[in-house]
Design a protein around this nucleic acid. Structure first.
Lengths: 259, 259
DNA sequence: GCCGATAATCTCATATTACAAGAAAATGTG
DNA sequence: CACATTTTCTTGTAATATGAGATTATCGGC
């Protein structure tokens, strides 16, 4: 049984939060056990969530996430300025190289791909849209973390040190911070075969109006496609694209605040 | 200001429900006005929704839907048996004809595309994934409605009669019901240029274990591609696919109930 | 089509917690 | 650095969410 939620909004979220990749389907009985709600309470929640489409169930079946999620995802794709501003650059890079280009958001202590375009054949990405990944894995996370202000960065690394150690980014907080210096210097991060063997990742940070990193623009490409000076060229293009997306986000901000 | 929600779960939904295609971005001030909550209450809600990722905001920007939506959509695609069972048939039909094949769920009084595959070039569908459509538009809605038991069907048509009238499906409830007879007879619905001019839609119902229609399998194809007997052939294939998907759903039910 | 079993909902008294108003803090701006 | 705006924190009060048990609906078997 999990941490008790203190208000009903958190209780609602608690219900939705048990639907994870490890457990996509739940029966009422199982939910009662897991969440610790009484029978009438749980059914009240399920009824509301089902009526609003967040959950569905079929006869003799457990509950799963429902169509409201699909609808909200459609609305998000139409409203998220990161996606709206970034998609043209995904197309551009995917058109120029045989690669997968991604837009990845910083989200809690994780990162999350919110859009990607692939021009590669064997493009069964290990990082599909919507699947959270740890910050410490690969170029994408580093490209964001490296540009956090020190007062946020140090606590974050300290909190998640074991993760960074496991990823081979250094054994102490200082060592991890040291490894991020070169990223800050170049403006983008590179990773050779860190997430997927034989695949190189390039990633540059996208900033919000207040200059804090909120996302990353990334290109992943087969290692044998990027011999010699091409690596630097791609890195530079990724950096440029990320910069232009940041600028686009800032300009949207002005459209809003001046209305 | 909208109808007052009676409990806090409904109030949560009320906040999310104002994010529609017509209005994808809201400021706190606007939300207070629209929802009628006091300032502290609204901010409490926004804080919770933001922390959990349902909403995002950037400095000097209104709120929009957030990354949690993307994550949940990923989980849904992995858990929805309709999608899991139906996707192979989408691929099959899209491979055989130059068309768009869709899986559409019945959802409230609307229908909602939850998956589609297109093999057509000019495939800028007017019916993308996640965008709700009225039940009365086109073959898809009819293919579902036609197979509802009469005790559910009549109230539904009565409730939404104006919609059916606007769609030209008949002026009275009886006339609409009459129009659905042929669908029931053939097992699938056909629409010539109803949603998009020059495009024919074929749609057959998908049933849950209790034999009530819950979704539709559909193929849309350019009108000049389906001369002569081909129309009937496609209709039959759509019907067949829908039947097999229904069977797949039923078999999943048994896997669950016997564990 | 009826019956037994399981699943979902209802009633009601109690206590928790959500609420608004005003004040305080934090944040961003010139 | 000080001002203006936005966001969060207090507090007493009123509302409503909760659980136990009873009741009703639904499903599967015969």
């Amino acid at each position: 049984m999990r941490k008790k939620a203190v208000n009903s909004l958190e209780r609602l979220q608690a219900v939705l939060e048990v639907f994870t990749e490890d457990r996509l389907e739940w029966t009422p009985e199982e939910l009662m056990e897991e969440l610790g709600y009484s029978r009438p309470t749980l059914y009240r929640y399920l009824k509301i969530l089902k009526e609003s489409g967040f959950l569905t169930s079929m006869p003799n079946t457990g509950f799963t996430l429902g169509p409201r999620v699909v609808e909200m995802d459609y609305l998000l794709r139409k409203s998220d300025n990161l996606i709206l501003s970034g998609t043209p650059y995904l197309q551009k890079l995917a058109g120029r190289y045989e690669c997968t280009a991604l837009l990845v958001r910083w989200y809690g202590e994780k990162i999350l791909c919110v859009d990607s375009i692939s021009s590669s054949h064997e493009a069964i990405s290990s990082y599909p849209r919507g699947r959270p990944m740890p910050l410490s894995r690969g170029a994408i996370g580093r490209s964001i973390v490296a540009f956090l202000p020190r007062r946020n960065l140090v606590p974050l690394i300290t909190r998640t040190l074991d993760e960074w150690q496991a990823a081979g980014a250094g054994d102490t907080v200082e060592a991890v911070l040291d490894g991020l210096k070169s990223v800050r210097k170049k403006g983008y991060a590179v990773a050779y075969g860190e997430v997927t063997p034989g695949v190189v990742g390039f990633a540059a940070p996208i900033f919000d109006a207040g200059q804090s990193p909120i996302a990353s623009f990334s290109v992943t490409i087969a290692q044998d496609h990027v011999g010699g000076p091409l690596a630097e060229k791609i890195g530079h293009e990724v950096l440029l694209a990320a910069g232009e997306i940041s600028a686009a986000l800032a300009s949207h901000r002005h459209r809003i605040s001046s209305r």
